[in-house]
Structure formats: C-alpha cells, structure tokens
C-alpha cells in the first residue's frame, strides 16, 4: 500500500512537469482526486484493510491526498502567472505614437521679457504703476523739463492728436503722474506701449514697449543707481556680464548715464553686433533733474532719486538673438511658437 501511494505521488510529480495550461491541471485533478480518481478509489478501498492496518493507511492516504492537492495548487498558481505574463506580452504598443497633448499656447516674446524684468524689480521692492498711452503734452514733455522749444523735442518724432495731446513717446510721463499724487518714498516701475514717428525697418517700429523705473527717497545716490541696475543686468543677462555706465544727456536727469552691457555675442571682444566696441547699449538712466522735482512739488534739497528706462524690444532682441524688430509685430506663428 505504502509503495503504491509513493508510486502515485511520483507519477503525479512527473505528470505535473508536463502540464502546459490550466486545463491539464484540471484533467490531473479529475484523474487523481475526482470521484473516480485514483486516490479516491484508493480511499474507498480502505474498508478492505485490516483493523490494524486501516488507521495507518488512512492517515497515509489522507496526507498524500492533501499533498497532491497542494502540488496541483502550486502548479496552478505558477501556470496562472505564466499565462498572465503571456497575455501582457501580447499587449505591446508603439510608444512612439504621438501623445494626446493639450496643445499649449505661447506668450509673446515681448511679454516674456517684460515679465522677467518685472519679476526682478518686484523682488527689489518696486511697485507696478500704470498710465495712459494717449497722453498730454505736459506729462510727456513739459513736466520732464522738455519745454516747447527744447532741442531734445522734435515734433517730427511724435504722433500728435492735437496741440496738447499726443501718443506718449516714452513711459516717463507715468513717473510724473505718480509723483504728483504721492509723496516719497517711491519705488515704482511702469511698463507699456510707446509710439514714435519712425517708419518700420529692421531696427525701428512706430510702436514699441518701454520699461521705466523710479526710486525717490532722502538719500538716494548715483551709487544706488549703479547698484540696482547692475543687479538688474546680472539677473537678466547673466552674472558674467560686465556693466558700464557712460555719461549721457537726457533733459529729465542730471547726472545722466547710458548703461552698456558687454556684448552677448563676442563677450566684449568686438563683433558686428556691437559695432566692434564690445559693448551693447541697453538703457538710459540718471538722477532725476531738480527741475522735474520742482514741477511735481518735491524739494530737491530734501529728496533725490534715480530713474531708468529701456526698450523691451531691444532687450528681447539681444536676449533671443533676433535681428529684425518687425518680427515682433508680424506675429508669424512659426516665430511665436519658438517662445
């Protein structure tokens, strides 16, 4: 009896090795454990055993039955796992097919640059102010120390609406409007469209964007102007840029300074882009002229200030290597989508 049972177990183990799928296992289960299965039949034969032999044989048989059940179960799990894997193997796809993206749009490069500049000055404690684009001659010129017959003022360069109203030629009038309505300290920037009577070519456009800044307080010096604008240049063009302050003339600032940055292309060695000077002019700046303070009722003995202004198009052209200002206003999608 014992030998027989051992033989059955051996037989099962070898048959299990040949099993290919779950059906084979089910066949084996029926063959051995089914109603007419080999093990079941053996169990039925127990009655014919002697009383002494019966308990031992019964125990042996039952244990073997459990073992066989266990073996079948293990094999079954193994097969199931294999079959799952096989199924997954059949589910391959071409991962290089295009994804279903939500086609994102783009910000205009000018606004991208304006935003970046704005962030820098916001982090330095500047507030953003706004003002009209169609402006009074008074704010655009007169209050900025550019009286009617000043050489710096050329009617040819401005779009007038009537004698007193024009399209602002710079964002500086916003400074006057802010100073008129509040007392120092002031730290502000303003951003917006400006207009000059320039026919469009690769470096001119009748409309452009300016960023203007002003800081007024009791002890503001030319050193502060240099400090703040140096921080600005380093943050927008990179820390390895050199900054140069050069004497200039603007009617509304004294002293005045033009700000140059070492050429982005040749790193100061001199190339066509910088006219072989190694420097690129990026903005105008200076300490507010006492005459302007008088126009807004500030005491120049008590307060000093600095102001600066730059063209967003110029900054964007330098930053992105764009060589024609007209591209900004043509709005060709092949251009816009690069930003």
């Amino acid at each position: 009896m014992e030998n027989k049972i051992k033989g059955v177990k051996k037989e099962i183990v070898s048959k299990l090795n040949l099993v290919k799928d779950l059906k084979d296992i089910e066949k084996l289960r029926v063959e051995y454990l089914g109603r007419k299965g080999i093990v079941t039949l053996l169990l039925r034969k127990l009655g014919s055993f002697s009383a002494e032999e019966r308990p031992k044989a019964g125990q042996l048989l039952n244990q073997s039955k459990r073992e066989i059940e266990e073996l079948l179960k293990i094999k079954e799990i193994e097969i199931e796992k294999l079959e799952k894997e096989k199924r997954l193997q059949g589910e391959g796809i071409d991962l290089t097919l295009p994804g279903r993206k939500l086609d994102r749009g783009t910000a205009h490069p000018i606004n991208l640059v304006l935003k970046e500049i704005e962030e820098i000055f916001l982090s330095l404690g500047f507030k953003i102010e706004e003002g009209p684009e169609v402006e009074l001659d008074y704010y655009n010129f007169e209050a900025l120390n550019i009286p009617k017959d000043h050489p710096a003022r050329d009617d040819q360069d401005s779009f007038y609406i009537n004698k007193e109203i024009l399209l602002r030629t710079h964002t500086s009038p916003v400074e006057i409007r802010v100073m008129e309505k509040q007392q120092p300290p002031i730290r502000m920037i303003t951003i917006g469209r400006c207009y000059r009577r320039d026919a469009a070519d690769s470096t001119h456009a009748p409309m452009f964007h300016q960023i203007e800044g002003l800081a007024v307080d009791k002890d503001i010096t030319f050193g502060d102007l240099k400090g703040v604008l140096t921080v600005f240049v380093h943050r927008i063009f990179g820390k390895d840029r050199k900054v140069r302050f050069r004497p200039a003339y603007f009617p509304f600032t004294e002293p005045s300074a033009e700000v140059d940055v070492s050429c982005l292309l040749c790193h100061g060695r001199g190339c066509r882009a910088c006219g072989y000077t190694g420097w690129l002019e990026i903005m105008g700046s200076g300490e507010t002229d006492p005459a302007v303070f008088k126009m807004v009722g500030y005491d120049p003995e008590k307060y000093s200030s600095f102001a600066f202004g730059m063209g967003a198009e110029r900054i964007a052209m330098l930053k992105y290597g764009i060589n024609d200002i007209r591209l900004f206003f043509e709005n060709d999608l092949r251009f816009l989508k690069q930003f």
């Binding site: 704005e118 916001l122 404690g125 507030k127 953003i128 300290p185 002031i186 730290r187 800081a215 307080d217 009791k218 002890d219 503001i220 010096t221 030319f222 050193g223 502060d224 240099k226 400090g227 703040v228 140096t230 921080v231 140069r244 302050f245 050069r246 004497p247 002293p255 300074a257």
Partner: peptide
Amino acid sequence: GYDKILPTLFNTTIAQEGKD
C-alpha cells in the same frame, strides 16, 4: 569717471506693494 563711483544698494524703507 562713472566707473569709479561705487555701486551700492539703497536701504530705504518702503511698503512693498508689489503688483496689484
């Protein structure tokens, strides 16, 4: 020489209103 004037960062106190 503008280049010889030391750059400084002002330390005036001001309400930082930022962007409205």
